[in-house]
Design a protein around this nucleic acid. Structure first.
Length: 659
RNA sequence: GGGGGCGUAGCUCAGUUGGAUAGAGCAUCAGCCUUCUAAGCUGAGGGUCGCAGGUUCGAUCCCUGCCGCCCCUACCA
């Protein structure tokens, strides 16, 4: 609703600009610093001052001269030395919110693919992976809210070095057979993903102490790539079990996927071979005859380093920064496979996967996985998107640049522009949390704001451990507050609070801020946290519930409220500001999509919750004696609650039945 | 060396694409529970927006140069 007014104002003033001055320009609508200045502010006169060589105030006056009345706008005033402040007709605005039917966004642009999670299937997920998945999932929810068709992909690198290392760990270090590992997976007394976490740390340490055994890795990698034999079977067994563990972990947080494209199929279905041919044909890569990359197929640095133009020093070492795509032993690097994958996402490869059902979520949705065998299953059409978002941490920006450069070198400029590296900074650990976990720190580390963790060393916070700890902490609170409630219900509530806390924690930071993970902070349910927002929603619900419990009926607001009533009641600024803020949720989602910052929505949810909590203390609703006024307060409560829940839904946070 | 990011309250961070008196949370201090549950609310203190220039009506935001920190710069991903 608020968005409609913003758009209308922009349009009106853009029109005025054209009529009065013959200027075509975009008019931004902002918000005044103080509520007393009005609801909206238009600083356009300042922008034109120089161009027209006239005082901003004069321009503003001329813009307002003879302007037609705008529906929903009470007045336009010139303030300061040229601001145009807009005051809304509060009664009309509130009335239109009352009549508003929730609109489903209709933006018929093409399909968008969001790829996120992408955890190496060789060990349990950790908190860094949580940031990726939560960020990606929330972005998906944002797009869906606006009516955008979205396809969620979780890429499975099941033929990479990390899987090979764990397979080598089982085979060489542990001397385990396929059947042994199968038994391990089925053993309900151990967590297979946790077992692999430790095994991965052990094999990594072993390689370090005995570098000669690195041959295990190479051999295993070759075996996996060939796709035949016991080691390849073992790799599939391990990777599939770990993928299942990851999906289970993410489902706890409300995160689902539609399709799992696997690297093994990229290889077996010759996706890479096709991409390789294309790259060679268009001279996007070349065979290096000399230097350190001799014998490799490489992409020249000039392809992905556009800023380095004609800056050839003396040595002429142009091959120095080029990127190896095919190794001298003939195997393809990750980037090469990623180029093939990216081409497929846009439907540019002329090939497709086969698909089979991986599993069905408890809520009924199915996840598909790629396969190299033809199946009878009736899979939806995957791939072929107009725009692609790859949620990948910012340390990989160099590789993402290479992938996009690959597209560009092949002449797919439109798709290169539509490839977005949705990057984010890493999750590190606060020194305090390292100490708590018994991770050894150097003197220098102690002084730092954060310490980077290492999967290879087995150091880090496992995702499920964190979730368990959050649930445990939340449950203590719930037990204290509601000792008489059924245990299953208390568990459910604690689970919702835990997820709310975790998702909000991961979303409150903007993407390029490094999170220094701290248990104390993450386990807090007070202040700017998910539970704070959930609590506000629960309180709003309690008002309505209590009202009904008194034997009263929630009135049919459209019938009992009219514009005059609304106008009178919303003369009170506190009430009006709350209503106004609540009406901005669509506008906020739109802005957050434009800026690519889910954090903005988290911030908005918090502000709205805060605003409601103020209201909650200031205005007793159900004991309000004046019927008309009580109806307005009830409606406001109901409306804010609905907007709060809708916003929480975008964040993937649910409302507990009590707190 | 090159590429990218960051520097805002004691700490952790926002700051709506250049606008009016720079905001939250935590921490500290002082208040508020017989009330629609205090996971809450109210108030106080706390700032050279890293430093110096520039662009203009106006700069935390844009440009340049320094200072400091981080990430990347593999035939690992």
């Amino acid at each position: 609703m608020f968005q409609d007014i913003e758009e209308k104002l922009s349009a009106v003033f853009e029109n005025q600009l054209k009529n009065k001055f013959g200027i075509d320009a975009k008019v931004n609508v902002g918000q005044p610093r103080q509520g007393s200045f009005g609801e909206l502010a238009i600083p356009v006169a300042f922008q034109l001052a120089r161009q027209l060589k006239r005082a901003p105030k004069q321009i503003a006056e001329q813009l307002l001269d003879g302007i037609a009345p705008i529906e929903g706008v009470a007045s336009l005033e010139i303030a300061g030395n040229g601001y145009i402040n807009v005051r809304l007709d509060r009664g009309a605005f509130a009335g239109s919110l009352l009549d508003e039917t929730p609109r489903i966004g209709t933006r018929p642009t093409g399909k968008v693919i969001v790829e996120h999670t992408n955890i190496n299937p060789n060990k349990a997920a950790h908190i860094g992976h949580l940031r990726n998945a939560i960020l990606g999932d929330t972005f998906v929810r944002m797009l869906c809210r606006r009516g955008q068709p979205v396809e969620v992909q979780n890429y499975i690198d099941n033929t990479g070095v990390q899987v090979a290392d764990v397979v080598a760990g089982f085979h060489c270090l542990e001397q385990k057979t396929l059947a042994d590992v199968q038994a391990l997976i089925e053993d309900s007394n151990i967590r297979f993903d946790y077992f692999c976490w430790d095994l991965y740390a052990r094999i990594s340490a072993h390689y370090k102490e005995h570098p000669e055994t690195l041959k295990w890795r190479t051999d295993t990698l070759h075996a996996i790539e060939s796709g035949h034999g016991e080691l390849a079977a073992l790799a599939h067994l391990v990777a599939d079990a770990i993928v299942e563990a990851h999906l289970t972990t993410m489902y706890r947080l409300g995160i689902e996927y539609q399709v799992l494209p696997r690297e093994s199929e990229i290889l077996h279905l010759k996706f890479w071979a096709a991409a390789f041919e294309l790259l060679k044909q268009r001279n996007a890569i070349y065979f290096e005859e000399q230097g350190k990359n001799k014998g490799c197929w490489v992409m020249p640095a000039s392809a992905f380093r556009n800023s380095m133009v004609a800056k050839e020093p003396e040595g002429g070492e142009s091959g120095e920064d080029s990127k190896v795509i095919v190794r001298s032993n003939g195997t393809v690097t990750y980037v090469g496979k990623d180029i093939a994958y990216q081409l497929w996402k846009f439907g540019l490869l002329g090939k497709d996967f086969f698909y089979r059902v991986w599993s069905a979520y408890p809520d009924g949705h199915t996840v598909w996985v790629t396969t190299d065998q033809h199946t009878e299953e009736d899979a939806p059409h995957f791939g072929g998107a107009a725009k692609v978002f790859n949620v990948i941490d910012s340390r990989q920006s160099y590789l993402q640049d290479v992938v996009v450069a690959g597209l560009r070198a092949l002449g797919f400029h439109e798709q290169a522009d539509a490839s977005v590296h949705f990057s984010y900074e890493m999750v590190a650990l606060s020194p305090r949390t390292c100490v708590e976990m018994g991770i050894p720190l150097t003197e220098e580390d102690r002084k730092r704001a954060y310490v980077e963790v290492s999967g290879r060393k087995g150091l880090g916070v496992k995702a499920d451990d964190l979730v368990d700890k959050l649930i445990e902490t939340a449950l203590e609170e719930v037990d204290q507050r509601h000792p008489d409630a059924p245990a299953s219900e208390r568990h459910q509530v604690a689970g919702q609070i835990a997820v709310g806390a975790l998702r909000y924690f991961m979303l409150k930071f903007t993407r390029n801020s490094v999170i220094a993970f701290d248990f104390h902070e993450a386990l807090s349910f007070e202040g700017e946290t998910g539970p704070y927002v959930q609590y506000a929603a629960v309180r709003a619900g309690n008002i309505l519930r209590k009202y009904r419990e008194r034997g009263e009926q929630i009135p049919e607001f459209r019938r009992v409220l009219n514009r005059d009533t609304l106008r009178r009641c919303f003369e009170a600024d506190a009430l009006w500001q709350l209503l106004l803020l609540a009406s901005k949720s669509d506008s906020m989602v739109e802005r957050a999509i434009a800026s690519g910052e889910p954090a903005h929505i988290a911030k908005y949810a918090f502000q709205l919750a805060q605003s409601f909590n103020n209201f909650y203390h200031e205005y007793p609703v159900i004991t309000e004696p004046d019927t008309e006024r009580r109806n307005v307060l009830l409606w406001l409560t109901d409306y804010v609650r609905a907007q709060l829940l809708a916003t929480l839904d975008v964040l993937g946070i649910t409302q507990p039945s009590y707190m």
